[in-house]
Design a protein around this nucleic acid. Structure first.
Lengths: 353, 353
DNA sequence: GTCAGCACTCTGTAGAGTGGAGTGCCAGAC
DNA sequence: GTCTGGCACTCCACTCTACAGAGTGCTGAC
């Protein structure tokens, strides 16, 4: 009597990559319908899908095969099927993959970038809102890293009360500041002189490259202020590891799940900037555009999928876009939106910096 | 036969203000237990509370009176009671009102401010996290408004590609920047000259006061750059209405409610900076410290309460702290935490600016 | 004014019954 | 070999009933 194992051995080798055309069509239909309805999909619902011109009985047997191969699961016997992570993966890689934005969405993107103005931070913040609106996902936008930007200007501004501000402008237009305490007897002239020396010391290098000491002047007061400034620059250089993250539409996560516990744990992750930024980076580094379910390895996000898209300016990476949703998110839409918005954002950043 | 209305007329005038001592003790006990358990409180649970040395039957009759007067409600006949907004209001105003932070919390606050460093924005951001940790509420921190801060320094920095950056330092240490497009033939010398003229034009005034035109120099190129700069300053002045808002611990809202719909609508509000900032402002303006349920008039937050606390530096208001939780939030704890953290933050901002 | 006792009400849960959606398998048709 | 209609089966979701438990309001006595 043939066992289940025998039967599996009979079928196509489990090395996947290609399902036969009809199975692929069925998987496609199941994923599409499940994304839309969030309900397990039965064989009857699949019968009318394009590429599936067979009866429900045949669909059932194909679905059973898809389940054996790990693309689908049944929540319980005699229920419809829902896609596994592997099923979504196949869908993204070989089927509905990328779609395109509907005309309304394209219009929205065009309007946004036509009217976008203001500084980069503000624009990134609003972009996260736009993406969330377009896709109904939570959007994450990581700004360009300033690590490699050269220092364009260093200035010391007195604030009174023995406090002064070191203001650094980087070549990409980013501004960094750091408050420093200066000796009592410092006047504008000393600040200005010290500022000049700081500038001479740092200009053209990156913040991280700025040395720890500066050449002494004749004036001990100036030297004291300069060394405060150098210390401040160093602090700024050290802090700069943390790229800027803008999260938009976190309320969408509450709409995506009906278990309030899931919502809470996902939100907890989103509050940790460092975790989010390095998560997006990790996904990009593994060469993926979409990380589904357990693929990204962050346990509380096991029921989520993440779409990432680098923002490139003149061929260089200048930030990242991320979209977070349930594993049954609308991948074609999310990919299209991330692509379009990422491109436009890249052009824009290139034009402005 | 006496009607319900007759009975109400018999009891103390509904002008509230004072309940008799035992009723107040009972209300206190109900609120306290409901805050802790989130379950309707029955007469039996109240019997042992301090100030209530009567039998459950008597408690029941008092609770019925409290219900008639609008302090308590029953979710259904034969259930325990839960406090109404009016009940919480009485609790906050006349009963458990303010408490004090437990030693662990006080320690946490001390440590936080001992180790806090970095720029103000970073500190406010982290403060929102601290408050969320202390109170298990979502914390909102509004930074000082820079509207009235005088301009300390204006600088023009070239970025290449016909772009330049106007960098403004305000007396309170805030830095504002705005990218401007400048004519093609501008070199460092022109930028520097134009920067000097901009500074002379603006120094000492607030951004909003900065005039629209500057005195002409002899050099038309410089004048062109200066007028770009003036326009940029004006833009900056206009943008500054939006105070900075930092929201921490929004995941706590998911833990506070079990209806995922409520969570979603509250999160949606939290995403709208403008709404949140003006909400906090409105509450402060009406002279309240706590807004409970419908009191603040924002419908989606009807099941929430908000604790607000101004941050004052040298007697002047320099920001706001807000705590958002369910109406059954721990008011004594929230008030104490807001008070302590607000005070420490005020001292700190005073010392640094 | 307070209290013990009692009848009453309502919820939450467990168990039984039922309809429906969906499956797996099989024998027969192409 | 592949596909199909038919059929028996499974399990969920829903409804209904019964019942224990928590809590109340009322009443008559102190």
């Amino acid at each position: 009597m043939p066992t289940v194992d025998d039967r599996r051995a009979d079928s196509a080798p489990p090395g996947d990559a290609d399902l036969d055309t009809r199975k692929a069509a069925i998987l496609n239909a199941v994923v599409t319908e499940y994304i839309a309805s969030a309900q397990p999909v039965g064989s009857q619902h699949v019968v009318d899908a394009p590429g599936v011109s067979v009866s429900s009985a045949t669909v059932r047997s194909d679905m059973a095969a898809l389940e054996r191969d790990g693309y689908l699961v049944q929540p319980h016997t005699s229920a419809g099927r829902i896609p596994t992570d592997k099923g979504y993966r196949f869908f993204v890689d070989h089927l509905g993959g990328t779609g395109s934005l509907d005309p309304g969405g394209r219009q929205q993107v065009r309007q946004f970038f036509d009217h976008a103005h203001g500084e980069i931070e503000q624009m990134l913040e609003r972009t996260s809102g736009l993406l969330a609106d377009l896709t109904d996902c939570t959007a994450m936008v990581v700004g360009p890293s300033h690590e490699s930007a050269a220092v364009r200007s260093v200035q010391l501004v007195g604030l009174g009360h023995r406090m002064a501000l070191v203001v650094v402008v980087l070549a990409d237009g980013a501004v960094r500041k750091q408050t420093v305490e200066v000796p009592d007897d410092v006047d504008e002239a000393v600040l200005s002189e010290a500022g000049g020396r700081l500038a001479a010391h740092t200009l053209g290098a990156t913040l991280a490259q700025a040395g720890h000491t500066a050449a002494p002047s004749g004036n001990p007061t100036v030297d004291a202020v300069v060394s405060c400034g150098v210390a401040a620059l160093h602090t700024l250089g050290g802090n700069d590891s943390g790229d800027q993250l803008f999260v938009g539409g976190s309320s969408r996560m509450a709409a995506a799940f009906d278990a309030v516990d899931t919502v809470r744990s996902v939100l907890t992750i989103l509050e940790q900037q460092l975790v989010v930024v390095s998560l997006l980076r990790d996904i990009l580094d593994t060469g993926l555009t979409v990380a589904i379910g357990a693929e990204h390895g962050v346990e509380p996000l096991a029921s989520c999928a993440i779409v990432v898209m680098p923002i490139s300016v003149d061929g260089l990476e200048a930030g990242t876009i991320g979209l977070l949703g349930p594993t049954r998110m609308n991948y074609p839409l999310a990919l299209a939106a991330a692509q379009v918005v990422g491109d436009r954002l890249g052009e824009r950043l290139g034009g402005a910096g």
